[in-house]
Every structure is written in structure tokens, then in C-alpha cells.
Amino acid sequence: MSDHDERRRFQRIAFDATAELRQGSQKWQVKLLDISLKGILVSRPERWEPDATQDFEATVHLSPEVQLEMLVELRHEETSKLGFVCLYIDLDSMSHLHRLVELNLADRTEMMRELRELIE
């Protein structure tokens, strides 16, 4: 287990969905690899040339009717993956994300711990 994994306080949920990253006039279609209460991991798109000083808007398409909208910051880049931390999420999106994580965590105690971590 890497130091990065040991420091992780939020359970990642593998979830197959499409997503879109936007920064200014640039837009990239990506595949969501996993999601947590604190951020997202997506596939690295072709022609990836962002402005490293600016945040991104992310839209995750959970279903045709349900999307999560987040303001995110790029935290790490790999050859094929990009990791983002959530800076802001609206109430509707947070409700959908909470429900998704809750359904994928078998332990309600773990869910409550993650919510406390998020608030602190």
C-alpha cells in the first residue's frame, strides 16, 4: 500500500460513467474511473493541455436524468489517469453522491465516518 493510499480517508467507489471536464473554453470528454465524497478519478483525455493555475468544472453523468456538477482542482496526473479533489458541489449533486456512496458502502458506520471527515 502506498503512502497515498494510507492517507486516503474517503472510500473510492468504482463507477462506470461518462464525464466532462471544462476549463474556460476548453472541454474534454472523459471516463469516470472512481468517485468518492471528496473527488473523482477520470481517464486522461487526448490533447490534454489545461491551464494548471485554473480550476475545472466537472459533470458526471450518473444516468440520463442525473448529473453531478462539481468545481474541482487537479491534484495528480498519471499517464492514463487524472485525480481531482472537489472544491464545491451543489446540494442536489451532493445528495446524489451521498446516495451513491451509501449504496456502495455496506457499513453505515463507515458512511457516517466519511461524512464527519468531509465536514471537518
Rank of each mutant, 00 (worst) to 15 (best):
M1H: 03
D3R: 08
H4E: 12
D5E: 12
R8G: 04
R8H: 01
R9V: 05
Q11P: 10
I13F: 02
A14Q: 08
F15P: 01
A17Y: 00
A19F: 02
A19K: 01
R22V: 15
Q26C: 11
Q26A: 15
K27D: 11
K27T: 15
Q29C: 07
Q29K: 08
V30T: 09
S36Q: 13
S36K: 15
I40Q: 04
P45S: 03
P45W: 05
P45G: 07
P45V: 06
R47C: 03
W48N: 02
E49M: 08
P50S: 00
P50Q: 04
D51A: 09
A52D: 08
T53I: 08
Q54R: 11
A58N: 00
T59S: 05
T59W: 09
V60N: 03
L62N: 05
S63N: 08
P64Q: 06
E65P: 06
E65T: 14
Q67M: 08
L68N: 01
E69T: 11
E69R: 11
E69D: 11
E69W: 12
E73V: 04
E73L: 03
R75A: 05
H76L: 06
E77L: 02
E77F: 01
E78I: 00
K81A: 08
K81D: 00
G83D: 03
F84N: 05
V85D: 12
I89H: 04
I89F: 09
L91K: 10
L91N: 13
L97H: 14
H98E: 07
R99E: 10
E102L: 02
E102F: 11
L105P: 01
A106N: 13
R108E: 11
E110G: 03
E110T: 07
R113H: 14
E114T: 06
E114Q: 15
E117L: 13
L118C: 00
E120G: 11
E120Q: 15
